[in-house]
């Protein structure tokens, strides 16, 4: 179904927000992805994705505390919404069903 569409990077962001649970905000999400997946994430790409996910209703945000190391700027914590969870599940299911649909023989052939 189209309404649960998630891009590849969006899915990674959603998953990371899930992993971090209560601690998911810009910098932590960025470093989590970077350390787990060994890939570079630019602030721009991440923020755009977060904003888009929030607009779609998959994430909700909450203003956090202002700390000195952020020059008094508040953090914006993200959490997965029920709709977000559905989208992630849908995404996972579609992949699994696709995986399952691949005939065994395909793998064998590839190995030859």
């Amino acid at each position: 179904m189209k309404k649960y569409q998630l891009g590849e990077f969006e899915e990674i962001v959603m998953l990371t927000v899930g992993i971090l649970f209560d601690e998911a905000y810009g910098v932590s999400i960025k470093s989590e992805i970077e350390s787990r997946l060994q890939r570079n994430v630019s602030v721009g790409a991440l923020q755009t994705a977060l904003k888009r996910l929030e607009e779609k209703g998959y994430l909700k945000s909450q203003d956090g505390e202002r700390t000195e190391e952020r020059a008094g700027r508040p953090k914006k914590y993200f959490r997965i919404t029920a709709l977000g969870k559905k989208a992630m599940e849908y995404s996972k299911e579609t992949r699994e069903s696709l995986w399952n649909a691949i005939p065994e023989v395909a793998w064998k052939l590839k190995m030859v």
Binding site: G26, V27, D63, E69, R70, K76
Partner: peptide, 11 residues
């Protein structure tokens, strides 16, 4: 969203 991102940037 300016404040949050700026915070991230400073951090």
């Amino acid at each position: 969203i300016h404040q949050f991102i700026e915070g991230d940037l400073f951090e």
